[in-house]
Design a protein around this nucleic acid. Structure first.
Length: 439
RNA sequence: CGGGGCGUGGCGCAGCCUGGUAGCGCAUCUGCUUUGGGAGCAGAGGGUCGUGUGUUCGAAUCACACCGCCCCGACCA
């Protein structure tokens, strides 16, 4: 993509409303634009990142055996009366009346609807286990949206719902999601820690929140330092096999958010040098809730014994739009964003230091063509800006690699390759650059 | 929802107290010079001062109401 024909509105000055670093950088780098309180438009660079994150989540969900569907954003309010949550959800649920005076709600979550879909078709235990998920915009009318897309009112969420015959198989479904989450976040370059979370009236130990550790996180978290370096299950992990050891290995180590934190237990279980108290950003949650919705909504299956039983359910959320901000919180410096390669909006930036100079233009044109042919997404800065402005802009938007081409280097037949994260610079010939990135 | 604050060219702000021709920096456009870490000079364009009502000869400025947004706290992917 040629920058001169693209749309990346960079801001030199920091908008005054942005308090946390990810929000500031998302506005300055032209990723998002606020349209109303807690509601954002996604500009080209931001949208690309959002799509990349979404795709990683999708791939890991599919790998774990979940099946993608797409449910609508608007739901009939009657569904919510069936489950009993119509009143319980309160003013956080946006209610809309259509021209026939029918009441709709903009879905804040989809337990009711997915249960309705399930019960319409699935009648036998032989169809289980089943896990249906979608990636769809949600709306929660938060009292106080803030921190940009970190806590917007409208947000993109992946929500999956598992259906099983009994608790034992439900646990296996839960474990699959748990492992899929570890993998998905890891692929985005994040270290996430599953934290024991409040399970409410259902009880049990089957709820975890996945937190990215970052100083600016919204939650206070306490954990055993050993969790940080624990290896993530590989791509080849067998989701059909027993995943319980993986979950248990982590669950054995202390990790809790402030609402369930037990200081005495923390000190008893974790040696002092391994105790860690920091901030976390919740980017996902897995939750087993049994028959909470299937009972009132009469979603039953016939078991092997011929008896109908309410299906055992769990739900599993990932805040896709929030992840964009969370990744920036975890990966930036004073100059701007530092995208992990798997989620970067472009693989590399090609900087023409003297647009209009025939030799420089030609060298850049060749590199752009070769790198593109090699399958790389290249953002080519072919604008007439001065070098300083280009460097600052590239650093700000945070592409993992910068290829800098200027007359000075070309005299020696060299261009510069800079790693955004380390700042390391290398001088290479154009061919070497292509070889480097084509591999 | 309690408390606080802010709405003035695209962005950041001054002007308001004490009413009298709407200003600054950045950005934008044109020209020239420049070109390896956010250039210089010269010129130009762009604003119903959030909305409404009122007070006044006269309102960005005073009063009232409304709308929007932000921050702190209690709650949430």
């Amino acid at each position: 993509m040629r920058l001169s024909r693209y749309f990346v509105p960079l801001l030199k000055e920091t908008p005054s409303e942005a308090q946390i670093v990810s929000h500031r950088l998302m506005l300055r780098a032209g990723l998002i634009r606020q349209e109303a309180a807690g509601i954002y438009a996604w500009l080209p660079l931001g949208f690309r990142v959002l799509r990349k994150i979404e795709q990683i989540v999708r791939e890991e969900m599919n790998r774990a055996g979940a099946v993608e569907i797409l449910m609508p954003t608007l739901q009939q309010s009657d569904l919510w009366r069936e489950s009993g949550r119509y009143d319980a959800y309160g003013p956080e649920m946006l209610r809309i009346t259509d021209r026939h005076e029918r009441e709709l709600v903009y879905g804040p979550t989809n337990e009711e609807m997915v249960t309705e879909i399930f019960r319409a078709y699935v009648k036998s235990y032989k169809s289980l286990p089943l896990n249906l998920y979608h990636i769809q915009w949600k709306f929660r009318d938060e009292v106080r949206p803030r921190f940009g897309v970190m806590r917007g009112r409208e947000f993109l969420m992946k929500d999956a719902y598992s259906f099983d015959l009994d608790q034992a198989t439900a646990r296996r479904s839960y474990n699959r999601m748990y492992v899929a989450y570890l993998r998905a976040f890891d692929r985005m370059g994040l270290v996430t820690i599953p934290m024991r979370a409040d399970t409410g009236p259902i009880g049990g130990d089957l709820s975890h929140e996945f937190h990215v550790l970052a100083d600016t996180g919204e939650s206070q978290v306490y954990l055993d330092r050993n969790l940080i370096d624990m290896p993530v299950p590989p791509e080849t992990i067998d989701f059909g096999g027993d995943l319980d050891p993986i979950v248990q290995q982590r669950s054995a180590l202390y990790a809790a958010t402030s609402d369930v934190h037990d200081q005495a237990r923390f000190e008893a279980e974790v040696p002092e040098e391994r105790r860690m108290s920091t901030r976390g950003i919740e980017v996902g949650q897995v939750f087993y809730f049994g028959a909470k919705y299937s009972t009132p909504m009469k979603a039953t299956v016939t078991g092997p014994d011929g008896k109908d039983v309410p299906v055992e359910m769990g739900s599993y959320g990932i805040g896709v739009s929030r992840l964009v901000a969370a990744i920036i919180e975890a990966s930036h410096d004073d100059a701007g964003i530092i995208w992990p390669e798997p989620v970067a909006p472009f693989d590399l930036g090609l900087v023409n230091l003297k647009a209009g100079d025939a030799k420089t233009d030609a060298a850049c044109g060749d590199l752009y063509a070769s790198l593109t042919r090699a399958g790389k997404d290249v953002l080519y800065d072919d604008t007439a800006e001065r070098p300083g402005a280009k460097f600052a802009g590239m650093d700000l938007i945070g592409l993992p690699w910068q290829v800098v081409v200027g007359p000075r280097g070309l005299e020696k037949g060299l261009v510069e390759v800079k790693n955004r994260k380390t700042g390391a610079k290398e001088e290479l010939s154009a061919d070497e650059v292509v070889n480097r990135f084509a591999k």
